[in-house]
């Protein structure tokens, strides 16, 4: 099928991009000030220990050899070790990725569930008070420093009202969730552990709200714009002229067509949320990739950064492909020839 072939071709095109990402981050890791072997060896390391570490990390090899070692390791599933913790980056990513994925998924759910209706409302009441309020929300959403909003929510809901926990992902006294997905909400629900589901929900609310805000704003803005454009189109005018009631015009014709470009926006927002998780996770001590990235960057531990860039590169590319394929499914006019 045409669409499947298109998807496959796009998938294959990820490879060169990822090679580029690995080259970029590898180059970056070699210009970092300070000697990584010195950091890894620690104080009072003997010259022999230092030499040994240089050999272990292959720092004495020529750069192309070092790069080749890194890339061939990647293919085997060895993403290198963190220089400071000595843990394999692949193991760390497996540990932290589900937390970030869960956070981003909840945030995007909020963003879509609120953003799309808000945009629709705004469009059908264009230039009236509802629209003005919604546009103000959108403006604040994209302009608000996420880390600052996170603090405000912490002060208000955590400190003043005491309604919600302000850090972590789960009360540790509830034990570790068992289950394969790594998403606490899903694992706990599957196990029927409702106390844990409730606790996990309470923990995710504030970080997810913070993270959803810019995405929500952008989606609302975009939905409004594309709906207005569609409503101004000939066939909608025709539908109106035919006497179809307003509601059916909007939901029957307008929304479906308006949603197609909005989909792109949702895909982009997903990528933005992955980046934004750096700030949100830092404020809420959310044990995910964002916090891992911050800690690694601040300690100049570059192996994890390289791994994170690659992981996000893969995820982001897949989302883009999914969006484009969905485009094709929703809109038969788009050709994937």
């Amino acid at each position: 099928m045409n669409l499947a072939r298109y998807a496959l071709r796009r998938l294959l095109l990820i490879v060169p991009v990822l090679v580029g990402v690995s080259l970029l981050t590898f180059a970056l890791s070699r210009v970092v000030p300070g000697d990584p072997a010195r950091l890894a060896a620690g104080a009072q390391a003997t010259p022999e220990m230092y030499e040994q570490i240089r050999r272990e990390f292959g720092l004495d090899d020529p750069l192309p050899v070092q790069y080749w070692t890194y890339v061939s390791g990647l293919v085997r599933g060895d993403w290198g070790d963190s220089i400071l913790s000595r843990r394999p980056v692949a193991a760390d990513l497996r540990l932290y990725w589900p937390a970030t994925l869960e956070l981003v998924l909840v945030a995007m759910t909020i963003a879509v569930a609120v953003g799309v209706p808000l945009g629709v409302l705004s469009a059908i009441r264009a230039d009236r008070p509802t629209d003005q309020v919604s546009r103000l929300v959108s403006l604040l959403g994209v302009s608000m420093p996420a880390f600052w909003l996170a603090l405000l929510l912490q002060i208000f809901f955590g400190l003043r009202l005491g309604w919600l926990p302000v850090s972590g992902r789960l009360d540790p006294m509830l034990g570790a969730p068992s289950g394969g997905t790594g998403l606490v909400l899903v694992d706990a629900a599957l196990a029927g552990n409702w106390a844990m589901v409730r606790d996990a929900l309470a923990h995710v609310v504030l970080p997810a709200l913070t993270l959803s805000f810019p995405a929500l704003a952008t989606i609302a803005r975009f939905t409004r714009a594309s709906l207005l454009e569609v409503l101004g189109n000939d066939y909608v005018r025709t539908a109106r002229a035919k006497g179809l009631v307003e509601r059916r015009v909007i939901f029957g014709h307008g929304l479906r067509n308006a949603f197609i470009p909005t989909l792109t926006m949702i895909g982009l927002s997903f990528g933005w949320a992955m980046g934004g998780s750096v700030l949100v996770e830092t404020v809420y001590d959310w044990p995910g990739i964002g916090l891992y990235a911050t800690r690694s960057a601040l300690t100049l531990d570059f192996m994890p950064i390289m791994g994170i860039a690659l992981l996000y590169g893969v995820v982001f590319s897949l989302i883009n492909i999914a969006v484009d394929v969905a485009y094709g499914v929703l809109d038969p006019r788009v050709s994937h020839a």
Partner: peptide, 15 residues
Amino acid sequence: LTIPDLILALAFAAA
């Protein structure tokens, strides 16, 4: 454009 901008900025700034 494949790497989220904040992650990339973080990496550049740290380096």
